[in-house]
Amino acid sequence: MDFSKLPTNFFLTLFQYTKDVHSDQYPAVDPTREDLSLAGKVVIVTGASRGLGAKAFAPAFAKAGVRGLVLIATNSEALKNVEHEVYKINSEIQTLAIPTDISDGQAVASAFEKIKATFVHADILINNAGVNSDGEGAIISQADPERWWRQFEVNGKGTFLVTRSFINQLPTRETPATIINLTTGAAWKGNPMMPGYSVSKLVAQQLIPAIAPVHPNITAVALHPGLLDTDMLPQSMRHFDRETPELVGGLAVWLSHPHAHFLSGRVIASQWDVNDLLARKLEIQSGADLTIDIVGKFGPGQFA
């Protein structure tokens, strides 16, 4: 797929839903704001050893003053480095690094036992862990079955296992909580050049409308972070405008407050202005905006 002739802001405007859009952090999502403080809260970040986990979410929640930060990934040495960076930002945070393969049910259960022993329970879950092993230009007829399935093991099953354990560790069904699942614009429309990644991330995205209606105490949102300078960004996409980790991390902090509950069950993009979203709150709540659905004319009336 040739992206070279597209304007650099193509993906910034492709799914533009709000009048104002952003590529970098702006005042409304600055995690150091007093009204965005998350003092007393405990946050779990999966995929915390690199990428958005290390550069966006861990720093943002540290700046928001959380009480505890649980860092989950498979690389124990990299997790130690992230802990070190967190303490530079806020030395009062209690961190808990747990090397875990989230696709392993026993490993996830063990991780949550450690979380319970240390913090009793967590309040916020960032399902950031994910893999893209398609390779650039890996159309489905050429995909390796094992590499294809590994994406579903992590992006689908792993996200489910962590989410299930997180919900079950909440003290009551009324305890307020937040779940943010990282998705991708490729899951919204599909990407024939990354079919395994696109479809497996759709699994994580569609867990959100499965949570929101039956757990009204939880703000459950799928978040498309945009294009970021990580090792998962294909070379062919690197000439486009990219979002910063600070934008995505600050938005996650903003989503962890009661004002964002109207977005529960829905999917948003990091570029969208949160004040514009708030201005459209009634419109969003009353319709099917920001949900995945089938397009077409249905029902017998069309044949009358």
Rank of each mutant, 00 (worst) to 15 (best):
V154C: 13
P59G: 06
L170H: 01
D123H: 15
I140N: 06
A58M: 05
E136H: 05
A107V: 13
D134E: 04
A73P: 05
N155S: 04
A60I: 03
D144E: 11
G135L: 05
T159D: 08
Q94N: 09
V162K: 01
I126M: 11
A138R: 11
A117W: 07
E83H: 04
N155R: 04
T172S: 13
F166G: 02
T172W: 05
G158L: 05
K80M: 08
I140A: 09
T95S: 04
E92W: 06
G130W: 00
K80C: 10
A97P: 02
K114Y: 08
G68H: 01
P171Q: 12
K80Q: 13
S91R: 11
P176Y: 05
E113V: 11
D104Q: 09
N128V: 01
G68F: 09
K88W: 12
I98A: 07
R173D: 11
S103F: 05
G130I: 00
I140C: 06
P171G: 04
P99I: 11
S110E: 15
L161G: 00
D101N: 15
S91E: 13
A78H: 12
A129E: 01
L170M: 02
T175M: 00
E136D: 12
A111S: 03
L125H: 03
A78Y: 11
E85M: 14
E83V: 14
V120W: 13
A107K: 15
N168Q: 15
G68N: 05
V82L: 13
V162M: 02
H121K: 14
A78Q: 14
P176S: 01
D144T: 03
A122C: 15
S133W: 11
Q106I: 09
L125A: 09
L96W: 10
P176Q: 02
A54K: 13
K116V: 15
I124P: 10
F57I: 03
L170P: 00
F119I: 01
G158V: 06
